[in-house]
C-alpha cells in the first residue's frame, strides 16, 4: 500500500509536467486546430537556454524567469514569422512546417550544445525524502511550481481582459474582430504563452530525465496522451488528463509493463482513447467522421 501511494504521488509530480505541456498543446489547438509537433523541441531549447544561464553563474530563479521571458518572445516570433503566412494552408502544409520547425530546433540544440547528456540543476536541494518518504524535494518543488503556474494561467484567462480576448479569439475569430480584438496578435500571444509553459515544463523535467536534444520526445508523447485523454478541446481536461497520465505511467511502470515499456503505455492510452471515447473524458464530440 505504501508503495502504491508513493507511485501515485510521484506520478502526480511528473503528471504535472505532462499536464503543463498538454495545456500548451491544447491552447494552440483550440485557437488553430493544429497540433504543434515542435512543442517539445521548443521546450528543450528553452531548457538549454536556462542551462547556459545557470552555468554562466546566474542564480537559478533569475535564469528561470529570464528563460520564461525569452521563450515567450520566441513563441511569439515563431507564430508571426512561420505560422502567420500559413493561415489558410492545408493541414499537410502545416504539419510540414511543424516538422520542419522540430528538425531545425532539434538540430540547433545539438549544434550549439552538442549531443552529450548533461545534468540540469534543481532549485530544490533537499535530497532527503519529504512527506514521510513519499516525495523527493524536487518532486514536491516541481509540483508546487507547476500548480502555481497553472493557477496563474487560470487567473489570467478568467479574470483579465486580455485573457478574455484570447479565449474569444480562439472560440470565434470573426466576432472577436467585430469587437476590436486583434485576433492575429492573440494567436501570437497564445504561442508565446505555450512556449513559456513549455519552458517551465522543460526546466522541471530536466533534473529527472537529464538534458539532451531529444529530452522532450517522451514527455511530448505523454502530453499528447494527456491532452487526448482529457479532451483536446478542453484546457482543464488536458491538465487533468496530464496528471492522470503521470499516475498511470508510474503505476503501470511499477506494476504492469515495467519501466522499459513506459512510452508504449502512452501509445496504448492514445489508441484506447480513440477507440473508446474519442472526444476525451471531458470533451465534447466535435470531431468529424471523415
Amino acid at each position: 500500500m505504501q508503495g502504491v501511494l508513493h507511485q501515485i504521488l510521484s506520478g502526480l509530480a511528473t503528471g504535472g509536467i505532462y499536464a503543463s505541456l498538454a495545456l500548451a498543446l491544447v491552447m494552440i489547438y483550440q485557437a488553430t486546430h493544429h497540433v504543434n509537433f515542435a512543442q517539445g523541441e521548443m521546450a528543450t531549447l528553452s531548457t538549454y537556454i536556462a542551462y547556459t544561464m545557470v552555468t554562466a553563474g546566474w542564480s537559478y530563479w533569475v535564469s528561470f524567469i529570464a528563460t520564461v521571458v525569452v521563450s515567450f518572445i520566441m513563441g511569439v516570433v515563431v507564430e508571426r514569422v512561420l505560422m502567420r503566412p500559413m493561415t489558410n494552408a492545408p493541414v499537410l502544409a502545416l504539419v510540414g512546417v511543424f516538422i520542419g520547425l522540430l528538425l531545425i530546433v532539434n538540430a540547433m540544440t545539438g549544434w550549439i550544445w552538442d549531443f552529450t547528456i548533461k545534468t540540469f540543476p534543481s532549485p530544490f536541494h533537499s535530497s532527503t525524502p519529504l512527506l514521510g518518504g513519499f516525495l523527493s524535494g524536487h518532486e514536491l518543488g516541481s509540483t508546487v511550481v507547476t500548480l502555481v503556474m497553472l493557477l496563474c494561467i487560470y487567473l489570467f484567462f478568467r479574470h483579465t481582459s486580455l485573457g478574455l480576448a484570447m479565449r474569444a479569439a480562439a472560440y470565434n475569430p470573426v466576432s472577436s474582430r467585430l469587437v476590436g480584438v486583434r485576433v492575429g496578435w492573440m494567436l501570437a500571444l497564445g504561442w508565446g504563452l505555450a512556449a513559456a509553459i513549455g519552458a517551465i515544463a522543460g526546466m522541471m523535467i530536466a533534473p529527472i530525465v537529464f538534458l539532451d536534444p531529444n529530452m522532450m520526445a517522451g514527455v511530448l508523447l505523454y502530453a499528447f496522451a494527456g491532452a487526448l485523454l482529457g479532451g483536446i478541446e478542453n484546457p482543464l481536461g488536458a491538465v487533468i488528463g496530464g496528471f492522470a497520465v503521470g499516475v498511470i505511467e508510474n503505476l503501470g511502470g511499477a506494476y504492469v509493463v515495467g519501466t522499459e515499456l513506459k512510452l508504449t503505455l502512452a501509445l496504448v492510452i492514445i489508441v484506447a482513447v480513440l477507440m473508446i471515447k474519442p472526444s476525451g473524458l471531458l470533451g465534447r464530440t466535435v470531431m468529424s467522421r471523415v
Partner: peptide, 11 residues
C-alpha cells in the same frame, strides 16, 4: 547539419 538542412528545406 542534416537535420537543420532538412528542416529549412522542408519549410
Amino acid at each position: 547539419a542534416p537535420g537543420a538542412i532538412y528542416g529549412v528545406i522542408l519549410i
